[in-house]
């Protein structure tokens, strides 16, 4: 059974239709890389999956929970669907450890000590054990993004959504974040990534989704799709990105 099942989803911002009937199945352990030009609807699609955006038609089932339902249990859904953002969005008034502990203690009612142990564990996973008590403002962009990943991991999500998580980083900081994501993929974490890192999409992804004009234009195994794009739009896009 699919972990995330997207069926014919449509979404408009006023007059502008950004998703024109998108369908996508994501199984447990999949690493889905969504690529496409800006404005193709890829970020919007990702944001629909955890209810940050609403959609007008179609359905999204994530971990068996209907996202767009009238009384959608968004809280339950979001406990199992993590998200990492382009701008990190760490809480600046909390230390690194507190950032990672907040949702555990508030949402899951985990005791402080246990939450701190979990924080230590996930921060070790992203290579930031020594920064537990630092403030976000004292960290580099790459470190902040790794804390943001750890913050999501602390909730033990079944799927992690990554929205262009390296786009706001200086080039030399991109790899430290990608390495963390690659490690997660190896450990079997289900990932859906909107990305501009084509090499990463090809090497780490299990599925590639090329979005164009609000639709899934082409999809398949990344290596095959990159080697031989079927549609002229993807050919053009791949040529334009230098791969």
């Amino acid at each position: 059974m699919s972990l995330v099942s997207i069926r014919d989803v449509r979404k408009s911002f006023g007059e502008l239709e950004v998703l024109k009937g998108v369908s996508l199945e994501v199984a447990k352990g999949d690493v889905v890389a969504i690529i496409g030009r800006s404005g193709s609807g890829k970020s919007t699609l990702l944001r629909c999956i955890n209810g940050l955006e609403t959609y007008q038609a179609g359905s999204i089932l994530a971990d068996g929970i209907e996202v767009g339902g009238l009384h959608a249990n968004l809280r339950e859904l979001r406990r199992h669907v993590g998200m990492v953002f382009q701008q990190f969005n760490l809480f600046p008034h909390l230390t690194v450890a507190e950032n990672v502990m907040l949702a555990q203690t508030v949402v899951n009612k985990t005791p402080k000590k246990e939450a701190r142990d979990t924080a230590a564990e996930v921060l070790a996973k992203v290579g930031l054990s020594e920064k537990m008590d630092a403030w976000p403002s004292q960290l580099s962009g790459g470190q902040q993004q790794r804390v943001a990943i750890a913050r999501s991991l602390a909730m033990r999500p079944k799927v992690l959504l990554c929205d262009e998580i390296t786009s706001a980083l200086d080039p030399e900081l991109v790899n430290e974040v990608l390495r963390v994501v690659e490690q997660l993929a190896k450990e079997g974490m289900t990932l859906i990534l909107v990305t501009h890192e084509m090499r990463f999409a090809r090497d780490v992804g299990t599925n590639l989704v090329f979005m164009h004009h609000g639709k899934v234009h082409e999809t398949g195994a990344p290596k095959e799709v990159f080697a031989a794009p079927k549609t002229p739009e993807l050919q053009q896009f791949v040529a334009g990105t230098g791969h």
Binding site: N50, G51, L52, L74, R75, E76, L77, R78, R79, V81, G82, M83, F85, Q87, F88, N89, L90, F91, L102, A103, V106, V107, A148, R151, S152, M155, L161
Partner: peptide, 18 residues
């Protein structure tokens, strides 16, 4: 307060009051 703070805390399953 930047919109990202709302979105990040939403995606961590916090309710509005939280």
């Amino acid at each position: 307060i930047p919109k990202g703070q709302w979105e990040a805390s939403s995606s961590l399953a916090l309710t509005y009051i939280e």
